[in-house]
Design a protein around this nucleic acid. Sequence first.
DNA 1: GTAGGGTTAG
Length: 678
Amino acid sequence: MRLVAGSKSLKTLLIASKDEPSIAKIHALMILTGIFGHGNSNAKLIQSYARLGYIESARQVFDKSPQCGVDAWNAMIIAYSRRGAMFEALSLYHRMASEGVRPDSSTYTVVLKACTRSLDLRSGEETWRQAVDQGYGDDVFVGAAVLNLYAKCGKMDEAMRVFDKMGRRDLVCWTTMITGLAQNGQAREAVDIYRQMQKKRVEGDGVVMLGLIQACTTLGHSKMGLSIHGYMIRKDIIMDVIVQTSLVDMYAKNGHLELASCVFRKMLYKNVISWSALISGFAQNGFAGNALQLVVDMQSFGYKPDSVSLVSVLLACSQVGFLKLGKSVHGYIVRRLHFDCVSSTAVIDMYSKCGSLSSARTVFDQISFRDLISWNAIIASYGIHGSGEEALSLFLQMRETNVKPDHATFASLLSAFSHSGLVEKGRYWFSVMVNEYKIQPSEKHYACMVDLLSRAGRVEEAQELIDSMITEPGIAIWVALLSGCLNHGKFLIGEMAAKKVLELNPDDPGIYALVSNFFATARRWDEVAEVRKIMKKTGMKKVPGYSVMEVNGKLHAFLMEDKSHHQYEEIMQVLGKLDYEMKAMGYVPKTEFVLHNLEEEVKERMLCNHSERLAIAFGLLNTGPGTRLLITKNLRVCGDCHEATKFITKIVNREIVVRDVKRFHHFKDGVCSCGDYW
DNA sequence: GTAGGGTTAG
């Protein structure tokens, strides 16, 4: 090998080197030629070692250098910071002063970055003060770094204060503000800053657009998202994989799954994150089947699902009650990936929604770190299974920890009380939430309380609570009151609630179905017709009810009156036989749960064709005697099916678990765990 | 000036 003398060419070689031995060779050459120790050659060596992850070798160069310039110190600090070794990065920075090396703009920038990575606000602010002292207060790089520190620590007020005082702002400073606001739930303010930026004639790039897209995602503002997308195309702004992924995410989260898929298909370079964005979009919008299919597709394209994409799979499993798949995903994450706080919470949620409350609890008890959301998940689990007492006991355990309950914790707790009919406990903890925790009750909390009271038949008290509200009660509250009135035959208050509901122009067909059910129960057929007319006019159709059941690791879905099933004849035979036996035991069909004004006999037929009945019959046909059946329904279970299922458990001597959109019903020996509160 | 701003999940 010919000796390469020039320091410049050695540095070029350094940049090209791909492994430790080749850097070491150049390192040796530098020592031989006497270049090492001059200029910033040691800084370049440190950078090269660090770039490939050889941080110990980098440190050796640093320690063995006769003297280190600021570049070498900076390179070493960056190396530690990138590796996540914040303590080493900071202690090097603190050592600089005693070794007589003056930090430069880069030093402050990278140290601030290190503090941001570890969310160390105190050290960050101290570094920022020192930077200002040393005359770097107007440096845009240092400025952007401190803005980002505040943004990542959730201190947007502080960021804004610094931003307002900045003499010079470049694109990165603007972007940091826009992204920071968007990620801290201040999406409108993010858009305001962008408008200011436009006024100053600063041209945005893809990263700015990404911040705006995130703002649209949280605002649910698909129109603006669409126009940003169009703007990028018109202005030829480069959309890399990150920007494109954020578009997929934005469209998917706003429910425009066709647009999301369209952007996704056109992406030339995809990665696991882009796949995950699309998968979670489908899962979150309730398209569990599509989400699961996408995971299969992803693998056939050579992408391995990671814990993030698997969390979406778990969500999909939760939605359809696919316990078998959920279990294997759980096993896979534990064995092969990182079972962190997020994935363990998703697993807890999956087990609980797939009917295995005890497995959910086991996972919860085993995990080493529990944050607010893990606690909320386990409390909510007991709630939907109707164990209000156990939900409360977990809440009391949570109070012993450092994790502070939030509005969602109380929403789950109150709803747990509601499902268990624990009215007094609900009243008590509602007041604790307000008085001790100073949590302003939201619409959701009021809805829970109204639900709790009116489920228990105390609709007058519920109405009093509504009257005490400072804010205008929203639709969820009137709906809760109305369902209570429907279940307890309180037609006077019910009528008032029904009118309020209709005034608020709900866009959910399920709500119209409830109003219509209410009037049907009151035998007010004119009003029923009126509601149906509104539904027709606004082009709304009742969401078709369906039930899903897993048998032998495969999912089977049933729609109401589903004749397409290959076992339809056998299913009808089973139902006919059950119907006969049920009636002999005293079962009377509750035909008031049918929407239409039809002949009694037709109504009865429609009832026994409800999707959950078909699923039960299918389960009885295809599983061994004594096997527990788990059925997942997309709507609330109807009152008649609820009654019938109780009879069926007695006849066939089986446990039947039905999960509806609100909670679990464990039917056994003619009784339901909900105690007929639901 | 490979120093600062960026993607998915409970």
